[in-house]
Design a protein around this nucleic acid. Structure first.
Lengths: 175, 175
DNA sequence: TATATTTGTAAGTGATTACTCACTGAATTA
DNA sequence: TAATTCAGTGAGTAATCACTTACAAATATA
């Protein structure tokens, strides 16, 4: 990975997250990355290839984040860590662009990517089962849906307090 | 409102909901509406004007839908009607394009439009207060967030069963 | 050191973009 | 009836789009 290739990825991630995929022109990316426009096509083939590279890199990071939850065996800890993740993934400036891009792309391309969340959903289902909940699968689904709703608000509504609501949600489960 | 102006609005609503605002060209809209491209600019000034007209028309319809809930005084009925709306607004083929556009536009333009939901949130807060809930405002916020999460799934994840989850959510409140 | 490969650039390409302009024909108004 | 407004068209516009190509410089390999 050369220096300029890395710069292109960073610039594209930021611009895609800000403006969306199709509305962001390759010339704008090149300018922001301080490289010639042609270099983008040398390294990534076409615009779609650039997006793919960004998403692929992000998925690696997501897997690492999820691993901590999926490998946990204590059910109450699984749920606690899930809420911890929810408020963290949304609050760390570092990865903000990446997560925002995930949702933006979802709506622009109209694909949900269920498989990414599957291990998380399974871990939660199992945790609720151990805790004796009547419908553990639906409980898990509901939590993930809450996460989508929170993300929607966090990224689109300024001055939205996530922490307050995550805490409130967490307290609804007697743990 | 002439016949052709109406056709432009309908075609634009459909295309914006399908492809997004910026990726939909005015020439494509004109073709779908079977009018000359110039007519779009005659009636709406520019592309943004066309979007504004669509959103404005939709807001009127939303107000009517919300009115039934906001005017209800019986707290349990307020919540029941809210869940009824949630599964309905998401399932009626008729208005599907409009609601889908609402979310697409939110992510494309990064504006949430909190004011639209305010009367609904107030009605829910009041209902939870009457029912003796400890934190009625947060309960109301949570319900609206659930709605956003459900919409995300419904429009982006094929084969997603809304009704099942709405019922499950509803049953969580002892009514 | 000589040769090949990779990394990078500048200047293009045709297609498409939002939008304008000069012009009709029909309906309204004076 | 004469003048004016309105709805609608089709052929333009400059700018921008994703992408290509020819070529130079740097780097790796022999």
């Amino acid at each position: 990975m050369t220096d300029k290739k890395e710069k292109i990825l960073q610039a594209a991630l930021k611009l895609f997250a800000e403006e969306g995929f199709r509305p962001t022109s390759t010339s704008k990316i090149a300018k922001k990355a301080c490289v010639s426009e042609g270099l983008i096509f040398r390294h990534f083939g076409n615009k779609d290839g650039l997006l793919e590279a960004i998403i692929k890199e992000g998925e690696e990071q997501a897997k690492i984040l999820f691993a901590d939850i999926v490998l946990e065996t204590e059910p109450k800890e699984v749920i606690r860590k899930f809420f911890e993740l929810t408020s963290k993934f949304v609050n760390t400036k570092d990865r903000e662009d990446f997560w925002k891009l995930q949702y933006k792309i979802k709506w622009e391309m109209e694909i949900y990517g269920e498989h990414k969340m599957e291990p998380l959903q399974l871990a939660l289902t199992n945790a609720f089962k151990k805790l004796g909940y009547e419908k553990p699968e639906l409980e898990a689904k509901l939590l993930l849906i809450n996460m989508d709703g929170l993300a929607t608000r966090f990224y689109l509504q300024k001055n939205f307090d996530v922490t307050e609501l995550v805490e409130f949600m967490h307290n609804k489960y007697e743990l």
